[in-house]
Design a binder for these strands. Structure first.
Lengths: 343, 343
DNA sequence: GTCAAAACTTTACGCGCGTAAATTTTATAA
DNA sequence: TTATAAAATTTACGCGCGTAAAGTTTTGAC
């Protein structure tokens, strides 16, 4: 509003009547100046619409207030949601989140990390692509930048890992399914992109054996992130062939389940728990859309809010203390059974 | 690989045997140096793992090679997809895309633009939040940074607008629905967040009148971006009350339709075109999940690839020429009818 | 009112790079 | 081979800010 454009902090110092070093202190931490000074600066900022040059601020800094957030696939609503939540936590602590999606490509994942290095982030929250991730490249990155992994673990890489307790959550839903009907077969991808998939498969097998049932796996061919399509294709095959030893299917994740439900519907097969239902289908993740599938999808929720919060907290603590944790921690949160119509 | 860490371009110049100004030229445009020199530099970059300091590079520049991409809601798969596509086009031109989602909040939208100003982007691709957007703030931003609007238009703001031809696409599906059964009612939100919603409503009314049918609107209460929930709630009400003048419903967008389908399913109402079907439901957008709804959703696709490409092209042209277009252009792409099971 | 601590000002230098101007080297063609 | 344009080098300065050191003012407890 005031008048002419302020070009730099020097000019802003003269028009605002505050010395440049004090302004510099303020812009790097507003609470580091006296309240009365802060008010004068803030009024002047408002009046002259001055913002310090971000690039000049950061050029001499070892690291910035940027926090990188990297997820494998932003178009997957699950990752979009968890990224959003992580973003909010980062913002709350006064850091600047920088969101990057890898479009399911491990090359882009590495490139994203490369680009992050250029902006000298104070830390990074990384959900690795999984199986296809370049372990060595990621490990090298983590040596330079404090990094917390979430969702998918890579053994001994990064400061910490925060994710879901797949043993517990899969155990939970296997037990529920067995208690309320026939024991489930496990439906997954032949070559899952996600390392959680392997944990879930093992958890399923363990849970079935614990309950004295014989595990049975259906492994759908297919690559990439088109999970619904894979679930649909294999679902169509399964209901056509009718070779299942049971009427109950536990899918490795909700997106597969949604595709499966679609195939069952197309085949005229009624899915659910009521009378007249030919089969039961359950998922895992409590995907945002699973409450609107037909029937609504019984699943296990991942506590993604807790995961987001915890991973942000660990990273912030690591940044604030400046010292690497003496030991790498792994935190997993329990899932909750979400009983809906499909099983 | 080589040896010690290179700290700056000066050091890199001495170890690589290339003068610093030439290196500077190279890093700002690799093609601006002779091929033989380029090769020598690239070998040295490889050997010494040197990257110029991004912040020092940009501090004296009027603008950078950053391109901002702002969408209202990244957790909406439609925006996630279109953002992804835009991102790819930007990357191809050698610019650095910076993706920002506004989480449906107009305040965050303005904040995102503020933050973008700090990084001095060469241009911005903005999908406004719609009705709730702060027009003046966005217009002010567009005066400073070359900005192309996409998806949602704001009259006379930005260099150009690229979007969908709602008149054509709604006309298309209304005509299809009328031709194959009862004329549709139009189902939308009472206070739609999206300006396209108004265009679609008007297009529906116009199309119905053109075909000598009486338009009929159902306007669901509800705020925010939980479209499926709103579609579900109002859908449940509609099928319970059975006060419709027709058996055919055209939803303002696919996410409302998916919610509606879920409600119909829960009520035991069969949706589709076969015999024994109580009603038909159609959507708009060809949302990524609409091919897996039950039944699969008949809809109109938005040509989001064309939208993404065109808006990126216009922006790049604006940036390359450096001159603002003599007149603001508005480009709209036709939709395609996607015939599936629901109508 | 006194006084020490805290906060601020003044002065001054450095960071890593962009970039202009003058000069020298290299490539290309006559 | 020589002329000439193109490219690279040398030299030098500036950008906007961080930050250290020394001096001055303000604050708040007594």
């Amino acid at each position: 509003m005031g008048g002419k454009k302020i070009r730099n902090m020097e000019e802003f110092a003269s028009v605002s009547g505050i010395s440049r070093p004090t302004l510099s202190k303020y812009f790097n931490d507003p609470t580091s100046v006296r309240a009365s000074t802060r008010k004068r600066i803030e009024d002047a900022v408002e009046r002259f619409d001055y913002r310090p040059n971000l690039y000049a601020m950061n050029q001499n800094r070892k690291l910035t207030r940027n926090i990188g957030i990297v997820v494998p696939y932003l178009a997957d609503p699950f990752f979009a949601e968890i990224a959003r939540t992580v973003e909010e936590h980062v913002l709350e602590t006064g850091y600047r989140p920088v969101l990057l999606g890898s479009h399911g490509s491990p090359e882009l994942e590495i490139e994203n990390l490369e680009n992050l290095r250029l902006i000298k982030p104070a830390g990074v929250l990384l959900a690795p692509s999984g199986r296809t991730s370049d372990r060595d490249a990621i490990a090298a990155f983590c040596d330079e930048v404090p990094t917390v992994l979430f969702d998918a673990n890579i053994e001994n890489v990064g400061e910490a890992f925060v994710g879901s307790n797949n043993d517990q959550s899969i155990g939970l839903i296997v037990e529920y399914l067995c208690r309320t009907g026939e024991p489930p077969v496990f439906f997954e991808m032949e070559n899952p992109t996600n390392p959680n998939a392997h944990k879930r498969r093992n958890a399923y097998i363990a849970a079935m054996e614990r309950l004295d049932h014989k595990p049975h796996l259906i492994q759908a061919p297919g690559e990439g992130w088109e999970f619904e399509e894979i679930g649909f294709r294999e679902g169509a095959r399964v209901v056509r062939d009718r070779t299942l030893p049971t009427n109950t299917i536990l899918c490795s994740n909700d997106r597969l389940a949604i595709g499966f439900l679609s195939a069952a519907y197309e085949a005229g097969l009624r899915v659910g728990i009521g009378q007249g239902c030919a089969m039961r289908v359950a998922g895992h993740d409590d995907h945002p859309f699973s409450r609107y599938s037909c029937p609504t999808l019984t699943t296990v929720s991942q506590d993604y809010k807790a995961i987001a919060k915890k991973s942000a907290e660990i990273l912030m603590q690591r940044i604030d203390t400046g010292i690497p944790a003496d030991s790498r921690t792994e935190t997993v949160f329990d899932g909750r059974l979400i009983m809906r119509g499909s099983a």
